[in-house]
């Protein structure tokens, strides 16, 4: 494995006695797509929040491009190049789709594009990229489910992130829409973005992820190449076994 883009060592988060994430360690190489899977309540979203800075870890290191970031506030991490989406989507509801994405372009990695007109141009490109162009002038809270997911993507992409954290972007989508999103994520990787993705849709994760990290009750129970991990009996028992019955 080449020098990792980022690395998590002994990451632990406790909420008043409850350990949500316990001693998790993994590396992600540049341009890799890593899947984070596990049953509900396994601590997946907590890990994304710890990396993006929405939560502060109880213990452990997060190293991004050789730099410790575990104590940095969320906005500093965003400026270093970490973008995320939220499982419960967080558009700016009263703003238009274009305005939403422009915020991403105005801030984000390296502080973003400071000129508002140029930021808007960049936002338009991302809207084209995510297929939201025709919804540009609509208010974000008027969008339907799949378009909201696209917006969540476009906002994060407009930040020009080096690392993109995707939290269940396919939940509730139809088969066709899932395929579209899979293609979209692949296209994003081709642009040189590294991706950590939480997903329940197995079909999608199989096609997307180079490697998988499996969590169960906050513990890391398996890590490795996607096909190998999915054959691991512990994984099948903890997670997939239940689903097949």
């Amino acid at each position: 494995m080449t020098e990792p883009l980022f690395e998590v060592r002994g990451l632990t988060k406790r909420f008043r006695g409850l350990t949500a994430v316990s001693n998790v360690t993994f590396r992600v190489a540049a341009r890799e797509i890593v899947g984070l899977i596990g049953p509900n309540g396994a601590g997946k979203t907590t890990i994304i929040s710890l990396i993006s800075g929405t939560l502060v870890p109880t213990a452990g290191d997060i190293v991004f491009e050789g730099r410790h970031i575990e104590r940095l506030p969320a906005y500093r991490r965003a400026r270093l190049g970490i973008g995320r989406t939220f499982q419960v989507m967080k558009p700016f509801p009263g703003l238009s789709v274009l305005e939403n994405v422009t915020v991403g372009a105005l801030f984000g990695t390296g502080g973003g594009e400071r000129n508002r007109t140029r930021a808007e141009e960049r936002a338009r490109e991302w809207l084209k990229f995510t297929g939201l162009e025709r919804r540009m002038d609509q208010r974000a809270d008027a969008l339907g489910g799949p378009d909201r997911k696209r917006l969540e993507f476009a906002k994060a992409l407009a930040m020009n992130p080096k690392l993109l954290l995707l939290d269940e972007v396919m939940a509730g989508l139809t088969h066709v829409e899932v395929d579209e999103v899979v293609e979209l994520i692949k296209k994003i990787r081709e642009k040189g973005v590294t991706i950590l993705v939480i997903e329940h849709v197995m079909k999608a994760i199989r096609r997307l992820a180079d490697r998988l990290l499996v969590l169960h009750h906050g513990q890391q129970i398996a890590e490795g190449r996607t096909d190998e991990v999915l054959r691991d009996p512990r994984v099948v028992e903890a997670y997939l076994g239940k689903r097949r019955q």
Binding site: S52, Y75, F92, E99, F107, G108, M159
Partner: peptide
């Protein structure tokens, strides 16, 4: 209203958590 600063303030108004992870020093 036309500046980057204003866009940041409006983002804070609309959703402060989202604003923060997008790189705004709220």
């Amino acid at each position: 209203a036309r500046s980057r600063f204003g866009a940041g303030l409006v983002a804070i108004r609309e959703d402060e958590d989202a604003a923060q992870v997008m790189g705004i020093n709220t």
